[in-house]
Computed example of a mutant assay.
Amino acid sequence: MGERPVWDDRYRVLVWVDIISGELHRYRPGGNEDLLFKAWASIGTVALGDWGGYVLACQSGFVFIDARGVVVDTAPRPPGFDDDVRFNDGACDPRGRFFVGTVAVDGSPEKGRLYRLDHDGVATVMLEGISESNGIGWDPDGATLYYVDSGGTSPALHIFDYDLDSGQIRGLLEHVEFDSSLGVPDGLVVDHLGFLWLAFWGGGLIGKVSPRGELVSTYDVPTKFPTCLAFGGEQYRDLYLTTARDTEDGLAGHLFHAVTQSVGMRQPRFQLRK
């Protein structure tokens, strides 16, 4: 299950995780894809680290690796993280705090949480009662947080007021439920104008969503289960899409690429100051 692609402008590569296989992959456009890191269990997401490597949300806790895939540090599981849950998607806010959520392994509703990993390596619970923590991103000013809960009976995009200085989630601005015929809202990325590019699991499409949560347009993709997106390339016009494998779909599980007229944003780096 491909998840959370991130463009790394330092090395001009795309990295993403295979959650169930516990793998971190790396792709250099025009070159080959290779396996950068293998964990003993699942990896929910990845973010860039300011030391030149990456931070991974693993079943064992947070793992910090260098650009060669060598472990340089770790941090423990966050509070309330038990064996019956796993990490599922996450990203850094514009100040480099790492937000990552969880989902119950058996799909039970409201067992997930959203955590914030601070620069000292300590994780704090930000939201509870989440059914399937999924896509997360911020507007270009960092004042609005976009967050998807894909689980339960009413999957939705939540739009929050966000205090960038403190890293606190403030009031809920919008609760957006999309027509079920589109699929289930999943991973997302925000472009430089504040529009969201949202994968719809099971619907085989990507939706472009306004900053207020209005669906502007949709784009069909070659497989039924898109998971998450990233902008990359020299001008951040290259859109990458991860997908999940399905035995009935020959293209499922592949990494896809398209050139767009939209422009993405450079991804923040997690700053470890333990």
Rank of each mutant, 00 (worst) to 15 (best):
G101W: 00
L255K: 09
Y162P: 00
A244Q: 09
F270Y: 15
G194L: 01
R245V: 13
V148G: 07
L36H: 02
H158W: 12
K38N: 13
G90A: 08
L164I: 15
M265G: 00
A75S: 13
E248K: 15
A244D: 00
S108H: 12
Q271D: 14
A67P: 00
P76M: 11
A41R: 15
F256D: 05
V209L: 07
G187M: 06
I159L: 06
I20K: 14
V103L: 11
A199T: 03
A57I: 03
T153Y: 11
K224A: 14
R95T: 14
T124K: 10
D179Y: 05
V221K: 03
D9P: 09
F64G: 00
Q168I: 12
L272D: 00
R116K: 11
S42Y: 09
S42L: 06
G135S: 03
G203I: 05
R10F: 09
V71N: 09
P109D: 03
G129A: 08
F270Q: 04
T74G: 05
T153K: 12
G203C: 06
Q168Y: 12
F270E: 04
R212A: 13
C58A: 15
L173T: 05
G96V: 03
A123P: 03
D93S: 10
G213P: 05
R113Y: 14
S180H: 14
D186P: 06
G22I: 04
G52T: 07
G49E: 03
D9T: 11
R86T: 01
Y236P: 05
R10I: 06
V63H: 00
F231W: 06
D66P: 05
I206E: 02
G204R: 05
T102N: 01
S21T: 10
D161C: 09
D139S: 09
L196R: 07
R170T: 10
R269G: 06
T144N: 02
A39N: 15
Q267F: 08
G264D: 04
H175W: 11
M126P: 05
V71Y: 07
I130Y: 03
R86P: 01
R237Q: 15
R86N: 01
M126Y: 04
F200R: 05
H254I: 02
P155Y: 04
G233K: 03
W138Q: 01
V71L: 10
Y219T: 15
K224D: 12
D83L: 13
